[in-house]
Nucleic acid binder design. Structure first.
Lengths: 197, 197
DNA sequence: TACAAAGTTCTCCTTATGTTCTCTTTTTTA
DNA sequence: TAAAAAAGAGAACATAAGGAGAACTTTGTA
């Protein structure tokens, strides 16, 4: 179990290494985190080594290495920054980690696996998972799970026109479907999407 | 059987951990539930530990942990099945839940936010998050984080041709880039992708 | 080799947090 | 209605966490 500062120092080192390819010095860590004493930094680096999150390679300068050890108790990964074609990775100083629990999980949510290409232009591919929040109401533009005539189900973008609703696939080869509002029951809206390679 | 306050405190701690990635202090719990005395909070936390709903790691700050079912709930969502346009949702009896820890976490992984549309045809949109596994080697067809000339970075599909490598955008308006192999350094491969709406 | 830069080992300090009490009030239940 | 359980306040204390910096050793380099 890491303390607040241990956590911050580990994230700081992780990010520094992904950006620069080598570890920071103790003073550099201190500067990044606003700690004036390298003795203090050293103490925390030591405890991170004790706890198995870091390794020292010999006594050389910048000799810290990551062990890759990560807690599996929470859905948190280090955040390295933004990547745009043709530029260095841009670090976001305020955001050091991504908490997927916070982003994806919730009381009234469940997961569906998508079959088919009907939402491909919205970046939802065959076999992707989508996270759906259960609700009967949705807004224009939401991607919804809709039940039609109490039988078939579909995943489409929603547009309402008075007493009719339009269910719009995100695929240029498919046409939108228009139904009277009373034949379509919204079951939930898509709040997230996950793919693993 | 939990008393009313015990219930509230447990929920409060669970919510705090999902959102913040670490447990609250006694005073923070008090503030969230409008209890002024940390001694009182402490007493209820103690009884939650006695009843097996919480664990304490020594006397450390923020040292509370959830046990068993509670802690699993921070990693999973119920899995409802497959959705395909025009059919009922097909339930998969063997799979009742999705464990995001198994799907997303692993050694040497970090997260990048994607800027731009260069991978749009691969279902990776502007502002999506990708999970990258650090490695120097990659296979044909992998989506890689590549460092070019030790300066700029880019996210592209990889194809190797002997002593040259081709970096292929997934966007019909962009052309593939071909470089001598020694100018391109693979930093990692994309193993996952996440979007939240 | 001499010097600068970095790491190591200390000591001393402050503050935030957890722990242990006692006493009181409110709610539930027999 | 009396007793028990639950909820609450707060003081006093112990200790983990965070912080500064001096003095020293080791490593890298001009």
């Amino acid at each position: 179990m890491l303390t607040g500062l241990e956590e911050k120092i580990l994230q700081c080192i992780t990010r520094y290494i992904t950006q620069n390819g080598h570890a920071p010095t103790l003073v550099e860590i201190g500067q990044l985190l606003d700690i004036k004493s390298k003795g203090t930094v050293h103490r925390y680096v030591d405890s991170l080594i004790d706890k198995g999150h870091l390794q020292r390679s010999g006594r050389s300068w910048r000799g810290l290495r990551l062990t890759g050890e990560q807690s599996r108790r929470l859905l948190i990964l280090p955040f390295a920054g933004r990547i745009a074609a043709g530029k260095p990775i841009e670090a976001i100083p305020e955001q050091l980690e991504i908490n997927f629990s916070d982003m994806l999980l919730g009381e009234d949510r469940y997961v569906l696996e998508v079959k088919g290409d009907s939402m491909i232009d919205a970046g939802i591919l065959d076999r992707d998972l989508v996270i759906v929040r259960e609700t009967q109401t949705a807004n224009n533009g939401d991607i919804v799970v809709a039940l039609i005539d109490n039988g078939e189900t579909t995943l489409k973008k929603l547009r309402k026109h008075g007493d009719r609703v339009e269910l719009i696939p995100a695929n240029q080869t498919m046409a939108p479907l228009i139904y009277p509002a009373d034949r379509v029951h919204i079951q939930g809206v898509v709040v997230g999407q996950v793919r693993s390679y």
